[in-house]
């Protein structure tokens, strides 16, 4: 089971990294958005491998379905084809600083994994099946969400309401302008 998981995981992980690299490197924002979409979809597949099918479905519905649609709408409405601002010119050391930060984040992750024992043996198969069925069922998640994590859940709903109102107010513009941001903000829920 483990070897099979890795055989599925590695190509999907490569796809995710390709998506991220394209997002950073593409000159056209719409290409960046499509690369990000590739990255999000491959992450959904990885969520499936990690025994959380509900999160995979929500990743596709919320991110690929709502958030990326918002991004692409904004790009299509507001970015003109000849607009070019690709890389930064504000700080001379920006590339070096960005690369340094990225390398240090990655180094910390790898060091922590190395310290924490990277490749310990897995659980025995029976325990693995039991853990998988307990984690991956949406009813377990829902029960946790409505009992132990009820307060964060409700706060999240308040936050979404506030964000929706804020988006509507901020983009209302002139009276009688008839902007339709309300729909897209609701879609992001």
């Amino acid at each position: 089971m483990n070897a099979l998981e890795l055989w599925v995981f590695v190509p999907i992980g490569v796809l995710a990294v390709i998506g991220a690299a394209g997002l950073v490197a593409a000159r056209n924002p719409i290409h960046s958005a499509l690369f990000l979409l590739l990255n999000l979809l491959s992450l959904a597949a990885i969520f499936l491998i990690l025994w959380s099918p509900l999160m995979a479905a929500l990743q596709i519905i919320v991110y690929a379905g709502a958030i990326m649609v918002l991004f692409i709408f904004v790009i299509l409405f507001f970015v003109r084809p000849r607009q070019v601002h690709t890389m930064s010119y504000s700080l001379p050391l920006m590339y070096a600083l960005g690369a340094l930060l990225a390398v240090s984040v990655l180094g910390v992750v790898l060091f922590a994994l190395y310290q924490g024992g990277l490749f310990n043996p897995a659980l025995p198969a029976a325990a693995q099946v039991e853990a998988a069925t307990s984690i991956s069922s949406p009813s377990t998640l829902g029960r946790g969400l409505f009992s132990r994590y009820l307060l964060p859940f409700e706060l999240t709903s308040v936050l979404l309401l506030v964000a929706m109102l804020g988006a509507v107010v901020m983009t209302r513009g002139e009276p009688g302008d008839g902007s339709s941001r309300e729909d897209s903000a609701e879609e992001a829920d």
Binding site: A16, V17, A20, A21, L23, V24, N39, H85, T86, M87, S88, Y89, S90, M94, Y95, L97, G98, A99, L101, A102, V103, V105, L106, V109
Partner: peptide, 13 residues
């Protein structure tokens, strides 16, 4: 992925 995101925020305008 996180480091690539950091890099993108740093170098893209």
């Amino acid at each position: 992925l996180f480091s690539m995101g950091v890099l993108g925020v740093m170098i893209r305008r």
